[in-house]
Write a protein that binds this DNA or RNA. Structure first.
Length: 271
DNA sequence: CGTTTTTGACCAGCGC
DNA sequence: GCGCTGGTCAAAAACG
């Protein structure tokens, strides 16, 4: 969308040939004139770049708004769908022996989630349970996960088969929102935080800078290539896919990408 | 001063 | 009943 019909490659060709010409007295005047023309053209181009730049900004904002609406709609769809089909997902769940085994299997075999975070939903009449995995610094002991919602911590426990504690959170948006989550470092790979969500929010989705957090996690977090255990390889792979899918569906990331691309185009057109 | 976090106490479920 | 475990409560402390 940044193609500009007014942009003329003339300048480049001209300047490229300049040094090779023999310079006579009359020719130098011609060159001088051409330089003036070039200056004028450069100014015009600069104006044009500025105009396109501001246009890009507006388009980016529009895109962000559209994506935000899409995101909200997507959340709603997700909620409706999870209310509809309780049995199919539950089947697999009941066959498993322990809670923790279930958690792991769920992670390894599950399809990629629809939106940022949840990989799989398990629904019954009482509650919706979903699990999400976040990359985290090993040194970070806070057990907080930036998923865009606001949480109030109400407990912390040491569990039997995991050296790191489990933290319990409630959604603090409103007392009527009954969503809870548990966050604990993965026993298999301590560079992940495992967040387990119960029920669905009865209010609008996250407004915080989720995409920025995800970007940060990608930079800081455990996405360096790891090639040790088989299990870990699978976990890494799924996480990468999940994040990729999350990012492409995240409006703010899309907007940021658009801005970045337009920035690059402008930069390119300057050279 | 209101909100959030911390943390030990308490409770419920389960197996023995 | 008893002990173990996971989940929650609530008073005190910390925070903004």
């Amino acid at each position: 969308m940044d193609y500009d019909p007014n942009t003329n490659p003339f300048d480049l060709h001209f300047s490229g040939k300049l040094p090779k010409r023999e310079v006579s007295a009359s020719a130098s005047k011609v060159v001088e004139k051409k330089w003036l023309v070039k200056d004028e053209k450069r100014n015009m181009l600069q104006d044009e770049i500025n105009r396109v730049n501001s246009e890009n900004k507006k388009l980016t904002e529009m895109l962000a708004r559209v994506c935000e609406k899409y995101y909200a709609l997507n959340n709603l769809m997700e909620e409706l769908q999870s209310r509809k089909s309780p049995e199919s997902v539950n089947f697999q769940n009941k066959q498993l022996t322990g809670k923790r085994k279930q958690e792991l299997d769920e992670f390894v075999s599950s399809p990629i989630g629809l939106s940022l975070g949840p990989i799989e939903n398990i629904t019954n009449d009482k509650a919706t349970v979903s699990t999400a995995y976040f990359a985290a610094e090993k040194s970070d002991t806070s057990l907080t996960v930036k998923d865009g919602y606001q949480w109030r911590k109400y407990g912390q426990k040491i569990t039997r088969d995991n050296p790191s504690p489990r933290a319990y959170f409630r959604c603090s948006f409103s007392p009527s929102c009954l969503v809870k989550k548990k966050v604990q470092r993965s026993a298999e790979d301590p560079s992940f935080l495992v967040a387990t969500y119960e029920r669905t929010h009865n209010h609008t989705g996250p407004h915080a800078s989720v995409s920025r957090t995800v970007k940060l996690d990608l930079v800081q977090g455990g996405l360096e290539p790891v090639e040790e255990k088989k299990e870990r390889g699978t976990i890494q792979e799924v996480l990468v896919q999940q994040m990729a899918s999350s990012l492409t569906k995240d409006p703010k990331f899309t907007a940021a990408l658009a801005t970045a691309i337009s920035g690059r185009l402008i930069e390119h057109s300057r050279t």
